[in-house]
Amino acid sequence: MTLMPQLTHWWPRPHFSLFLLVLWLLLVNSVSPGQVLIGAVLGWLIPFSTQQFWPERPHLHNPGRLLLYMLRLLVDILRSNLTVARLILRDPDTLTPGFVRYPLSLTNEFAITMLASSISLTPGTVSAGLSPDRAYLLVHVLHLDDEDELIEQIRERYETPLREILE
């Protein structure tokens, strides 16, 4: 029982360490034993020395579903690019831009970050701010048709899956 807190203190994030190791190997573009060793040391050192900056641990429930979410996001990015391309080539005076306040139901910081990034990469929307009480996300829309429909769409496509995966 006393071993576990000790272990999490000295090795705070096994997954993050593994991620850093893979990142290092990609960065140096080789898998020689020396580079694996350096990567492993960095993978331990960076989470350990920065752990006080990360008060909240994201907990991942289902990595497989996160991958599925990423895949769907990629499809959405491709689709949204066609939409934005059409909008860009139109006369800017015929566009009706707008700011929308999106009421958040997520509370986890990492989940909010993921949602904001997803919004920025998809249909004509860029997340522009988070209210100080974290209740609203300010979203700028390039061409606003129906505010309620947009909010409903974001909730259905991104927020609900993210809540199931990350919270």
Binding site: I77, S80, N81, V84, A85, L87, I88, P92, L95, P97, S120, L121, T122, G124, V126, A128, H140, L142
Partner: peptide
């Protein structure tokens, strides 16, 4: 704000 859309996505 409208200029942001082009570079971030396209």
């Amino acid at each position: 704000y409208m200029r942001l859309h082009g570079p971030t996505k396209a």
